[in-house]
């Protein structure tokens, strides 16, 4: 079962290592991880997507880490999430137009172009990215890199599925 966790930590050396070690020690795999500063000075936020049967104990163990300030489990239905992906699609001048059209439909941005490939940058929900990939895969994917997922709790009561891409 995949869970998304948002962990607010002190921005100090070794904190990320402690957090990730807490999972690896227990044999749980971190599916995705993103870390970065927040609007509060000295605080970072780590967004983790983990495969774990249950989260209660893991959350408590995270809390036990001295530098961890807050642990929040983000339920898919009430979460805003986004990933960034760079994908290099094989295309020659002949197929360039089609790939470009698809990119346009998904609001992907062309950031590099060569005679044999086009590199696109896209961000959005995991579903949005997955759907985009489905459409460009037939042209051939040469290289792909994805960021960790970032997420925060929604404030509006609109279902996430209506504001683009849907939930997982």
């Amino acid at each position: 079962m995949q869970h998304t966790l948002s962990v607010t930590v002190e921005d100090k050396p070794g904190v990320l290592a402690r957090v990730s070690a807490m999972f690896s020690n227990r044999g749980f795999n971190i599916h995705s991880l993103a870390v970065g500063p927040t609007n509060v000075e000295g605080r970072s936020r780590i967004t983790l997507v983990v495969d774990a049967p249950e989260l209660e104990q893991l959350k408590k163990q995270l809390h036990k880490l001295v530098n961890v300030i807050k642990v929040q489990e983000l339920e898919p239905s009430e979460t805003l999430e986004a990933e960034v992906m760079l994908v290099r699609v094989s295309c020659d001048p002949a197929s360039r137009g089609e790939v470009g059209d698809t990119a346009g439909l998904f609001a992907a941005r062309m950031i590099d172009l060569s005679p044999k490939s086009m590199t696109l940058e896209i961000s959005g929900t995991p579903d949005h990215l997955a759907s985009f990939l489905d459409h460009v895969r037939p042209y051939g994917i040469i290289e792909l890199v994805k960021s960790g997922r970032v997420a925060m709790k929604k404030k509006s009561d609109v279902s996430t599925s209506l504001i683009g891409g849907g939930t997982r």
């Binding site: 050396p13 070794g14 290592a17 402690r18 070690a21 020690n25 001295v66």
Partner: peptide, 12 residues
């Protein structure tokens, strides 16, 4: 690093 797993907390 060694102490990470056998202390409550550690400092450098």
């Amino acid at each position: 690093g060694l102490a990470m797993h056998c202390t409550k907390h550690s400092y450098l």
